[in-house]
Design a protein around this nucleic acid. Structure first.
Length: 106
DNA sequence: ATTTTGACTTAAG
DNA sequence: GCTTAAGCCAAAA
């Protein structure tokens, strides 16, 4: 187990803490990690994805619930199908319903 | 140390 | 709603 940068660890922790059936935006994760503007860096971390089974990177979406990132095929198969059972989608726009499935830290 | 790049975000046209 | 521009951050070369 290698030790990553503090911010990196925090980001992974935050993503791991995302409850099932809910999604968080990059900006949200970045903010919870301590840097509200590090959304880009967060995306990069997800891209590396050191532990796919422990880090639900598929639960991290773009601002407004846009299904950006990942691969094109993934959005159609993996992501959409997986989320379809957990997260509510907006068929009208192919986006995640942040209003209902948006991760909220009470 | 400087430059490039990338799974971002927001604002403006 | 989509495209362009600018902002901001972190890691790799």
């Amino acid at each position: 187990m290698k030790s990553y940068s503090p911010f990196r660890q925090k980001v992974y922790e935050v993503v791991k803490q995302i409850p099932k059936g809910k999604v968080a935006t990059y900006g949200q994760v970045a903010a919870l990690a301590g840097n509200p503007k590090a959304a880009r860096a967060v995306g990069n971390y997800m891209r590396q994805n050191p532990d796919q089974r422990t880090i639900p990177c598929h639960r991290v979406v773009g601002a407004g619930g846009a299904l950006i990132g990942f691969s094109f095929g993934m959005v159609e198969d993996k992501k959409k199908l997986l989320e379809e059972e957990e997260v509510l989608f907006i068929k009208k726009s192919d986006k995640v319903d942040l209003k209902r499935s948006g991760w909220r830290k009470y």
